[in-house]
């Protein structure tokens, strides 16, 4: 593998936008001169079922096409998945893995629930931020905002531009604006935490 690569694994429930986020991020990093790869794990597509998504980011074209088994970063959009054996949030993780969890709980409390020694845990209440910003409990984009605190893939302003560009093809201006507000708030909340 030429150059370093960041491997991200997303855990969520169907409908929370893990697929959108995983693929969005892969596209957004292009403007930073990096190569991205994003894909979800496809299965029976049911709202509420545990799902996974994957994002890889590297300086060179990404060659491997397997799922992320030893993630650098684990992002959990629904904290009820922490105790789910089938979701496998901690599978393949090491002491270097960073966990970014959507929850109102503290990193310490989540660390205990994860049951991983010395886990690096960041938490942000992305659901509340999403509800406040655009009135729907879809926490994917605020989690991308928070991710920038954990891994400096781009500046928050660059993210906002990329988000507005991508979302305006598909969503109303209100939803676009709400998501832009949400990513910024999640970023700021986690940075000052």
């Amino acid at each position: 593998m030429a150059g370093p690569m960041v491997e991200i694994r997303w855990h969520a429930r169907g409908g929370q936008g893990a697929k959108t986020a995983a693929m969005f991020l892969a596209e957004a990093v292009l403007d930073k001169g990096k190569f991205g790869q994003g894909f979800p794990e496809y299965g029976p597509e049911r709202r509420g079922a545990p799902v996974r998504g994957y994002t890889r980011i590297a300086d060179a074209p990404i060659r491997r096409h397997c799922s992320v088994e030893e993630p650098d970063i684990v992002i959990v959009l629904d904290s009820t998945l922490l105790e789910s054996k089938s979701a496998g949030v901690t599978a393949g993780t090491s002491a270097d893995t960073v966990f970014l969890i959507n929850t109102s709980e503290s990193p310490e409390a989540i660390g205990k629930r994860l049951d991983v020694d010395g886990a690096k845990v960041y938490t942000v209440d992305a659901t509340q931020i999403a509800l406040d910003s655009f009135g729907r409990s879809i926490p994917n984009m605020p989690m991308v905002g928070a991710l920038l605190v954990v891994e400096e893939l781009m500046t928050i302003d660059e993210l906002k531009i990329a988000l507005a560009k991508r979302f305006s093809q598909k969503f109303s201006q209100a939803i676009v604006d709400g998501n832009v507000t949400a990513v910024e708030r999640a970023y700021k909340e986690l940075r000052s935490a």
Binding site: A22, A26, L30, G38, F39, P40, Y42, P61, H65
Partner: peptide, 12 residues
Amino acid sequence: YDGFIISHTEDA
């Protein structure tokens, strides 16, 4: 080309 692995993966 491989279903999902290529067809549904966002790639540069």
